[in-house]
Design a protein around this nucleic acid. Structure first.
Lengths: 187, 187
DNA sequence: ACCTTAACGCAAATTCTTAGCGTTAGCCGC
DNA sequence: GCGGCTAACGCTAAGAATTTGCGTTAAGGT
């Protein structure tokens, strides 16, 4: 006898994907501050009360959608060497995150208290870096410490995006990666 | 003939400080998600419409209060040497930001789109570091690059606080400072 | 002291959120 | 594949928050 069952198929799943799709559509058209729950409900053919019951409030729903959008669909590209792997990944990461929708996703993820949107979201980054590290090791390269990569490369990028105190140029990202690789070689 | 005048004294100022004080009081008592504009209005003896007209919405008001609270009242402590100055400042900074109210302030500041709460807030940090740098130079010490200090020390601290993926221990902060100082000496 | 108008208070209108209750449709055992 | 159980939904009404129009108060300049 299964108490506390959570249904995963059929109607429930259809509504979830319908609502997610609607939110993503709306985010393309309008500013995040303009979006309301009744608006999402109407466009996705669901009643508002359903959305409130399932997600609690707008910020939780937005965080849920943001995490789903951030979930990677594939491993980072294999360019043949650790340095270029890392640089390629970071450049793409920085471009995604610094775009309008990327900043919006970051804000949504960080704006939710319930759930663990933030944790799950930064786990994606960690896993990608871990993939790059293992790939480097199997090639016979030295590898790198994932936590240090996050501190040296990812954290500054996120910081400047969030606080809008510096342009997020490819050159800046490349310099962060280059300095990190030097440090690895020196150690 | 002054068009677009902004009044700064008397009633207007009193209401602003009254509302700020009320918000700070409420933040001590209850969770941020429970606070509402009508609640703040009643406790501070103001009508809700006044708050909406002045601040736009709750998140803007919370961001405004958070920035005001973050505004430093004094320069960072002078411990006599650059290394200990930096370590002392960073330890205090990390402790403040990782506390419950600190995380709440960060979330509020990053949650506002209008205004420039985020920019003004990280400017405080920049200014403090700049003060420490100048102090070091007048002592005859080597000084350091403020932007690099932000990337190497401040950014990782903020990243881990926001994403809750690592305990913010004094030891960790000290290791960040120590590694940064080594890098300075080596350059 | 007077004039202009930014900023406020009040109250009605609108919109969003919550909660009760009946209905639909997944999932399980048979 | 049939029926029972109940999670999840729709509907609706009550409650709370937000917006808006309009009259009033009081800052700041002349």
């Amino acid at each position: 006898m299964a108490r506390e069952m959570v249904r995963q198929g059929g109607r429930s799943a259809r509504i979830q994907s319908e609502v997610h799709r609607t939110v993503q559509d709306l985010l393309k058209t309008m500013d995040r501050g303009e979006i309301t729950v009744p608006m999402i409900a109407e466009k996705s053919g669901v009643t508002p009360s359903t959305i409130y019951r399932r997600w609690g409030d707008l910020s939780e729903l937005l965080a849920d959608v943001a995490v789903a959008r951030m979930r990677p669909v594939a491993d980072p590209e294999d360019t043949g060497a650790m340095g270029s792997d890392l640089e390629t990944f970071i450049l793409q990461y920085a471009e995604e995150m610094s775009s309008k929708v990327g900043r919006s996703m970051l804000a949504d993820v960080l704006g939710s208290m319930e759930g663990d949107a933030a944790g799950r979201c930064c786990q994606f980054t960690y896993d990608h870096l871990e993939t790059l590290r293992e790939r480097a090791l199997t090639r016979g390269e030295g590898g790198f410490d994932v936590n240090e990569a996050i501190d040296s490369i990812v954290a500054p990028i996120i910081y400047h995006i969030l606080f809008r105190d510096r342009e997020m140029t490819p050159d800046y990202c490349r310099s962060l990666v280059a300095r990190f690789l030097e440090k690895c070689a020196g150690a």
